[in-house]
Write a protein that binds this DNA or RNA. Structure first.
Lengths: 200, 200
DNA sequence: TATAATTAACTTAACGTTTGTTAATGTCAT
DNA sequence: ATGACATTAACAAACGTTAAGTTAATTATA
């Protein structure tokens, strides 16, 4: 029987992405993906030559267009402080809306071999990191822009990645998962640290 | 033949820990562990009833005594600022010396099911997080201590976790992996943000 | 103190299952 | 009729795990 709704690659990848994000490469079998898609495992090989290619395609799809909107903010003509605030807010929204994004990046950084890390660095991180580094130099030439760039990105990412364990920690409140609340906290931390107001 | 140097559980776990850190639970087979230890796979079942138990034992060993030295700093009588600086420095040293530590925690946060997350939260994070939260309240009651605690821990952890991809990023220098450099950067960022000096 | 029983620490061989993957085949729109 | 998209069946390899056997040290017994 010919299927009523033949699956294309994009549909398969859209289903595979959260699976890989949730259980990692080794934790997701071709049969698991197939079952979720509504196909036999063998049918997947009509769309992808092997599992590795399917996985890399899923990664590419998960990352595409993510960096673009951030790059626009970074290269705008606003003041450095405003660019920083906008960038942090946008990144917070992004990782909140697409929860697989930061998890997949994190998994790649831990699991990836050299060539995959290089791919991640050039394809995803290069422009983004370059932009943040330049922003950091505009913000304060005194600081090491490299360390500062990692700190800014890391702050946002870490708040997103700890979401799973948060319910089991004390004093956890709903607002702590609100991207706007996190964005405001991170922005203030980066710009002013703990000194709530210089006027005090 | 009875072996000349019989392996005990601790030896097996010491070898299993970096394997699990490097490839995750599903990425490490009993046969792989056995080969690295110098035993047959079946011999591992003489020491541990199953893979899950071996893994959880490895996690316990990797985490034990890690939180203790940090708790001491947090409960000292120094000023909040000094306690913060000491805590960050100690945590930086710790994740730099034992690179498996933060990776294993990160993997648990991503892979762990509910019961394992709860275990991680109560066994590892509870006292530590509680201490950092209280320190944050001492530092500045204005800030949300919960968000600030995650930010502080996250800053240190993220610098450690991005070590693998760092060689593939531009402007990377050796000093950016130096725990003392990172500690100083993070401390200054938390205390003062970008404002290099109020006297300027 | 000599000897028998027990135990700790392994081995090889095999089990049933799951894995990624392929082969052979079928169905339907163009 | 051809080609795109699917199926079921099967493959070899790797998986976690178990069974049975071997050896040497320890412990109990006479």
């Amino acid at each position: 029987m010919r299927p009523l709704h033949p699956k294309n690659k994009e549909e398969i990848l859209a289903i595979a992405i959260p699976l890989f994000a949730g259980s990692g490469y080794n934790g997701v079998s071709m049969r698991t993906i197939a079952k979720n898609v509504g196909l036999s495992a063998a049918a997947l090989y009509h769309h992808f030559p092997d599992k590795q290619t399917l996985y890399l395609s899923a990664m590419a799809k998960a990352f595409v267009d993510k960096a673009d909107s951030l790059d626009k903010i970074l290269s705008s003509s606003a003041t450095p402080e405003k660019r920083l605030a906008q960038f942090i807010t946008r990144l917070c929204e992004l990782v909140h809306k697409d929860k697989d994004f930061s998890v997949l990046i994190q998994r790649e950084m831990m699991d990836g071999n050299k060539s995959r890390l290089q791919l991640l660095a050039t394809e995803i991180y290069h422009d983004l990191f370059q932009g943040v580094t330049e922003l950091c130099q505009d913000l304060d030439p005194q600081h090491d822009p490299y360390l500062l760039a990692i700190s800014i990105i890391g702050l946002v990412m870490y708040h997103s990645q700890t979401a799973a364990i948060r319910p089991y920690l004390l004093h956890s409140k709903k607002q702590h998962s609100d991207p706007q609340v996190i964005a405001q906290h991170v922005t203030q931390l980066v710009l002013q640290g703990l000194k709530t107001s210089p006027a005090e």
